[in-house]
Design a protein around this nucleic acid. Sequence first.
DNA 1: GCCTTAATTGATATCGATATCTTTTGGTCT
DNA 2: AGACCAAAAGATATCGATATCAATTAAGGC
Lengths: 350, 350
Amino acid sequence: MKRQRMSDQGGTVTIHDVARHAGVSSMTVSRVINKNVNVREPLREKVMASIKALKYTMNMAARSTRAGMGGVRIGVLYSHPSASYLNEVMLGGLDQAARLGAQLLLEKCGGLQSQKNAVNRLVEAGVDGVILPPPLCDSAPTVQMLTRVGIPVLALATARPLPEVSAVRIDDFQGALALTRHLTKLGHKRIGFIKGNPTHTPTEVRYEGFLKGLSEAGITLDEGLVVQGQFTYKSGLEAGRELLDRKDPPTAIFASNDDMAAGVMAVAHGLKISIPEQLSVCGFDDTPVASTIWPQLTTVHQPIVAMGRSSVSTIFERIKELKSGEPSRPVHQLMKFTLMDRDSTGPAPK
Amino acid sequence: MKRQRMSDQGGTVTIHDVARHAGVSSMTVSRVINKNVNVREPLREKVMASIKALKYTMNMAARSTRAGMGGVRIGVLYSHPSASYLNEVMLGGLDQAARLGAQLLLEKCGGLQSQKNAVNRLVEAGVDGVILPPPLCDSAPTVQMLTRVGIPVLALATARPLPEVSAVRIDDFQGALALTRHLTKLGHKRIGFIKGNPTHTPTEVRYEGFLKGLSEAGITLDEGLVVQGQFTYKSGLEAGRELLDRKDPPTAIFASNDDMAAGVMAVAHGLKISIPEQLSVCGFDDTPVASTIWPQLTTVHQPIVAMGRSSVSTIFERIKELKSGEPSRPVHQLMKFTLMDRDSTGPAPK
DNA sequence: GCCTTAATTGATATCGATATCTTTTGGTCT
DNA sequence: AGACCAAAAGATATCGATATCAATTAAGGC
């Protein structure tokens, strides 16, 4: 009895409350919210004012029950990306799914046979579309299985999207180029490079960006400073040890992702090599680990959360088009990356 | 035209389809789904069979529009927890919120004044409840501001819940005790301990668990092996260096969280101390970093995602009670932790 | 065996937003 | 000025699940 629907209105403000307040029908309010064209200016303003006055916010759950669009299910099929990467994707994805009233189904798989099973489980569950985070985004068999049964696919963070799939990604080439320029501008000439897992498409593209950056600065590639990694912390540890144990170690190391950069930094800490005074290190992706470690990592920020969000809305649109029989083509969306200039890079020594 | 509502039924299976198939009313189906008691066994079975046969899954969005519970808004107010920790909380939280049809509002703040502003923003936005992840879960002023205006509060992962707030947490004492037992069982006698940030409540409790573990094993505390940390990677780095630079270094180090343990391991890698042969390291929380680094970290798994989920449903229940005028008391929920015995710990050397 | 009570089941209204259809409005063309 | 038509606004039906109340059945009690 204490707290009985206190405050001005009785709890939540609905579209009808706004309508009453503005003296129009709720349909008009709906049209205003959805930027529908057929509303005259004075009315639109009156409605907008009421929305503000009542602090109206839409109930997304209700919207999604609207006729026809009921219960869109989107599958997210992953094999073994880094834990934090997937977390961020899901963070954005779940948030957007909630907004759209869609349902996200997370499905895990391993080898090829297991991929088949996972795809079947998703189809059985009646998904209307599937998002493939890396590294599955580049798996042709998986994509085919899905497209064959008419389910649209979206590849997340692939460097080279397969045909027929939508994609949300950044320009890995430009990102690697920007980072390399950053290093050469700081005066680094001997730059080590740690490649990623060769089965992931960004691996090669980032390397190409690095090469371009070197040639721009008139530096000849020293093949001995290029080490193969696997995108894992452990491979970064090994590659770092290999590079830093040389008698002519590089003054900077460009690791193809943050986990490997963290490995390199761990080795450097052990060798009492101070960062960034004696060695500059940079990574790629800007996963949480980049700002966890010390010194904080200079890296290319990939807006993973936003990409997760965008993946969901992009494939949602596609599903809507397909359901209503409209013509529909895969959509490619390029997100902006940001160079995060933090504390792990500095001027080349001496 | 290619994909025109293929498969058996015309799109999504609803509760009504199931009802028709089973020859009952949709209300009965609803009761079966929600494990409501008042359904006789034969009918329940018939309904269950139909659910399976039609591969029915519920439309969560629709459920959340149900009378009365429309548009619950839950605020999540955080200051500066580790990025990955918050991610996991939100992952569980968003997922559960979607299920319940609630809306989650994320709000950030810094100092005390900024906390006031943040609380005001949340109240303005009309939140019905607020979740406080660490370290804000222990902030008495914030809690007071909220309870004063009648908004229920839930503290996440606090070790000592303030009065009047609900809480979702693990038993930090037992967790630290289990981990210490693990080390002593492996034969370690000289065990270093890195404390966490003194303003967080789990810091002291974990230390107490450690002490208890030592005394159980009949080990006298060496005060020199206890170092103050801050829950940050950097403080782990410094503490690790301090402990490992001693002439009589410990054979095992218990860091109060994973980030600090990662710092210790970085130092060890640098000193070419092999883990776990020469040094055992363990952390606490099992954040993604624990399985990212190498060797993978022995730690206490805190089910953060599940705790995020549980926080949302717990405060949701509370909100429901308050809204319907039922009597309502804060709820405390203790989650199970798990000892993750991975590769960073081993038998004490010689 | 009849009546009261409790346990089951069903019928109907509802939630919030939108699709769709209908009515009204306002303007243009001859 | 009258007719006609598109634009603008409203009325109503709908989505899927559940709350609520009514109807039915079963279970005891004397």
